[in-house]
């Protein structure tokens, strides 16, 4: 009896410091995760179910009360929200495949033995990613502006007068900035996946008579499919959160409205002090992002062997 008791005590004592160690190692992750992730998300969720009421009069005092799904109904009735979703859907359907295709081609080219100065090209392609998104957007806005751009001047010189900031073109000007910023980043992910393919595979393929072309499309691309899917998911998320490029172009083009993308709409609503509606918009964007990215993963899981 006493032996058993002391044995248990010993075990407990032995477990004490270990639990402390675990906690010490986990706290640096869980505490910020809780404070800066779960709590704000929870707060936004809670806000999105509130509505503002007032005690009356011209300058009556405001208070909030439970409003059920009122804010969400308003999100779905808001034509601006639908419009902004449609805009980024169009953006995503065109920009994401184009960008990833270019990234894939660049990664494959870097991976061929034919190319010289690989280190230079790898860094050069990745460089735009090192430029902060807002700076890139400001830089491009100078290239787009008909008053300031040497590109527009040059094109005018040969009789072409493009309008990069027109109502029909400004979306694609923004898409171009995103593509410029992110292609190198996506290329690097695909390229590092290519690097991990054992060279024996290529030797075997060559012995079987496969051309370089066949090796690229029949061996390399299928093997790095998980990376391509990963970059697609990142790009879908990035598209849904589109903000800085259109927000910067808005400074020089009135063809970008204050509600151009869902995030811009949420910001505009919040700046009008309607925090509850802004919260509902944010939660809705989050849910759509979640559904789209997991939906895409699910759809491609089998093919990619994930």
């Amino acid at each position: 009896m006493t032996d058993e008791k002391s044995g248990r005590r010993r075990r407990l004592r032995g477990g004490g410091p270990r639990a402390g160690t675990i906690a010490a190692f986990l706290t640096p992750f869980y505490l910020p995760f809780l404070l800066f992730y779960l709590v704000p998300v929870g707060y936004a969720l809670w806000q999105s179910f509130r509505v503002v009421r007032r005690t009356g009069g011209q300058f009556g005092h405001a208070y909030t009360t439970f409003g059920g799904f009122d804010q969400y109904l308003q999100v779905f009735r808001n034509a601006e929200f639908g419009g902004s979703l449609g805009r980024i859907a169009l953006f995503g359907i065109v920009q994401v495949p184009v960008m990833l295709f270019v990234a894939l081609i660049m990664a494959l080219l870097l991976d061929t033995p034919l190319l010289r100065a690989k280190g230079f090209f790898r860094i050069a392609a990745f460089m735009p990613y090192a430029v902060p998104g807002v700076i890139a957007a400001i830089m491009w806005s100078f290239l787009y502006s008909p008053q300031l751009s040497p590109v527009v001047d040059l094109l005018n010189g040969i009789g072409v007068s493009p309008d990069f900031l027109g109502p029909g073109t400004v979306l694609w000007s923004a898409a171009n900035i995103s593509t410029w910023c992110w292609t190198g980043y996506n290329m690097l992910i695909m390229f590092s996946a290519l690097q991990s393919i054992p060279p024996e595979l290529y030797e075997a393929a060559k012995i079987d008579g496969a051309s370089n072309w066949a090796i690229a499309w029949r061996i390399k691309v299928p093997i790095i499919a998980p990376s391509i899917i990963l970059t697609t998911v990142f790009s879908i998320i990035g598209t849904l959160q589109l903000y800085s490029e259109p927000a910067v172009l808005r400074q020089i083009s009135s063809n970008i409205s204050s509600t151009y993308t869902p995030n811009m709409l949420a910001y505009a609503v919040a700046s009008g002090n309607n925090y509850q509606q802004a919260a509902a918009i944010s939660v809705t964007i989050a849910v759509i992002t979640f559904v789209l990215s997991f939906g895409f993963l699910k759809l491609t899981a089998k093919r990619a062997g994930l």
Partner: peptide
């Protein structure tokens, strides 16, 4: 527990708004 207490705190502060008089 922490999340609940934070929620309680914010709940308090918001009900505070309603009680402040002109």
């Amino acid at each position: 527990t922490v999340a609940a207490s934070v929620a309680a705190l914010t709940a308090c502060s918001s009900s505070d708004d309603s009680s402040s008089s002109a």
